[in-house]
Write a protein that binds this DNA or RNA. Structure first.
Lengths: 190, 190
DNA sequence: ATAATTTCTTGATTTTTGTCAAGAGAAAGC
DNA sequence: GCTTTCTCTTGACAAAAATCAAGAAATTAT
């Protein structure tokens, strides 16, 4: 649980120690084997999870082809926020790429946080603004950069991911075919 | 000011009438001529604006080339949220594409809203989650769709924009060259 | 109204990226 | 260990998109 406390402090700002405990206690440890689904496209997102170890892939499957939206790694939170907050159905699948250790909270418990930590809305707000800003940069990358530049930028920021997950998923997430990814990769190595 | 009240209700949820007044009164009418800048890349974003009429382009200029991130239209809010909320410098320029009628609020006044409308953090949170969700879809479009599909989707949702602003800006914002945009457009018309 | 500037289109060409197919390599299952 | 399955690479080719250049069209300024 220590890691969760650490990251909640990091992402959500400085809570009082007792508040931090209130929040963390609502998260429950959860273990999922490789291949298991945390969430299914078209169904409601009933939980928010913090990844303690392992990796989770967010992807959509539309008329056959799969698009990997994101790969979540230890130390990050993961959910389909629109569905989790407003109800409605999730736009993507969330599947464990490896065995995964999580701390998860369901919608009901999540809503109880507010009763005990009045500032919670503010923390959420600040957290989501940061996420929003990162996404804006991601859009910018697609407007201004070639596949090769997107590869390089992402590799610089996440070198370790490249030997932990199937590269085709990283390719998809960066908006290129596996073949293009492979060729760029080859060029970089030599 | 009626339109501002209407949209604040629409975006930020149902406030009490007196709270709504508190919020709206902090926004000041502002008129900018075509070509004027609301904000400059590299400088702090000191205001949040609601567009009453006219259009505003958000763009970056890096090593010569210009990337249009977004074109904001009447009924929407516009700022560089990271800079506005956290300080630091704005990632893009905001320039009036036409004469523009705004209601604007500066950071100082914005922060005062909280003192008078305790729920404001929550409204902001919900608002930003919606924006975040829209951005996620925009990323998805770049991962999964061709230039032509992005054109068609955007045209369906914003047909009126196409005869109101220079098309090269729309092209950039959709992640394609003006020439590609022009050819797709030609194909659609015939 | 005319001139100057900006924007848009079009063609020719190059570059980038995707697709298809086959095989090599790695990982998982038995 | 061996087999099966999944993943990655490579080549040949096709398609998509960018670039360059020139001219047409539209807008703005004078």
């Amino acid at each position: 649980m220590e890691s969760l406390e650490y990251y909640i402090k990091e992402y959500f700002g400085v809570l009082k120690q007792d508040e931090l405990k209130v929040v963390c206690d609502k998260f429950k440890a959860q273990i999922l084997p490789k291949g298991a689904f945390l969430m299914r496209q078209g169904q409601p997102a009933h939980q928010l999870s913090f990844i303690k170890s392992g990796m989770v892939r967010l992807y959509t499957q539309d008329d056959g082809k799969e698009i990997t939206q994101w790969i979540s790694t230890p130390g990050y939170f993961v959910t389909e926020i629109s569905s989790f907050m407003f109800g409605g159905s999730s736009r993507w699948n969330m599947q464990a790429l490896t065995d995964v250790d999580l701390f998860s909270i369901d919608r009901t418990d999540y809503q109880k946080i507010l009763k005990e930590v009045p500032q919670w809305h503010e923390f959420e707000k600040l957290f989501i603004i940061k996420c929003f800003t990162i996404l804006e940069n991601r859009v910018y990358n697609h407007l201004s950069k070639s596949a090769e530049e997107r590869y390089q930028d992402f590799f610089k920021q996440n070198p370790s991911l490249f030997n932990q997950v199937p590269l085709q998923y990283i390719a998809s997430m960066l908006g290129m075919s596996p073949e293009t990814f492979s060729r760029i990769r080859n060029k970089q190595l030599s």
